[in-house]
Design a protein around this nucleic acid. Structure first.
Lengths: 157, 157
DNA sequence: TGAATCCCGGACAGTTTTGGTCGTATACTA
DNA sequence: TAGTATACGACCAAAACTGTCCGGGATTCA
């Protein structure tokens, strides 16, 4: 449990692919799908969704395709997952408005909501750039501190 | 997405209930189910599973029921969720052994595995005791430092 | 102009996961 | 031995997930 859907996985993989090919003006859904061996039509729809939410820009016609709308560093895994799978709530009794119907049972909800925020925080702190492989290892070593993401989260119950 | 199942929710709620009634030798599945308005038979099966994994102890017959097998402080939310929903993996390509079939595609897997560990860490750091409502507020204030769980996690990509 | 390439998006079928019920067997207590 | 409670497998309906099909539009190039 607590796993993300294949769609979200595919979406992350696709963005990673785009981040690793910044030179090309655009990559077609089919190219990306072929690169990873995932169903093209399915990926296409995922990319469409990411386009609608503004994470990608699309271009129809020959040599068209998709491209990141921002720098890979500025796109978090959270955004991608949220765009594809919708709002993530660890508690099954979602809906801040109505809450779970009967019973003020979910006193659990409160502490778990914090867990939820923590998880969101982790996901928000990870960018597509972090997922991509940065070729210039040697260069990175020379240029200074490694470009590692270091995340520290605090959870107080 | 990324939400836990109702079963896991129910399980946590039940353990919380047990933690809040330490005086009783045991609580029947029906009592707990009624307290929260959740289907009794379903909860029964969940409690049975928790019993098999050793988190609970059961006792049949009159005045029987379930009780925590350890102190509420010694039972983590992670254990409960794991017992009910099985191993939690954020990546859809689970199985460390075979990995996702074709394509060494899931280079994503590696960074996400760390996210997964982080989430597990959060869940492990939360005990059933933390979920329960502690009546003795005044007492707690007097006895010393507030019994708050403070969790700090570090994620390095 | 027209053909090729590529995005857009709804409808839909197959499968798996969940959530929940039923029935029966078993254990314990009074 | 009657009543209460767990143990557990079979079963089912509904939802979610994955994936496919298909008829559009947009854009580029010859």
């Amino acid at each position: 449990m607590l796993k993300l859907t294949k769609k979200a996985d595919y979406g992350l993989m696709a963005l990673k692919y785009l981040a690793e090919h910044p030179e090309a003006p655009a990559q077609s859904a089919k190219d990306i799908a072929d690169a990873y061996g995932i169903p093209a039509q399915l990926l296409a729809k995922i990319l469409q969704r990411l386009t609608k939410t503004g994470l990608l820009r699309s271009h129809a016609g020959m040599n068209g395709g998709y491209a990141l709308s921002r720098d890979a560093r500025q796109i978090s895994a959270f955004e991608v997952i949220h765009a594809i799978d919708g709002p993530l709530f660890i508690t099954s009794c979602t809906k801040g408005a109505k809450g779970c119907d009967l019973t003020p049972s979910c006193t659990i909800k409160e502490p778990l909501a914090r867990v939820n925020e923590t998880i969101s925080g982790v996901l928000k702190s990870i960018s597509i750039y972090d997922l991509a492989e940065h070729e210039a290892h040697a260069a990175a070593d020379a240029t200074g501190p490694p470009a590692q993401a270091l995340v520290t989260l605090t959870l107080t119950l």
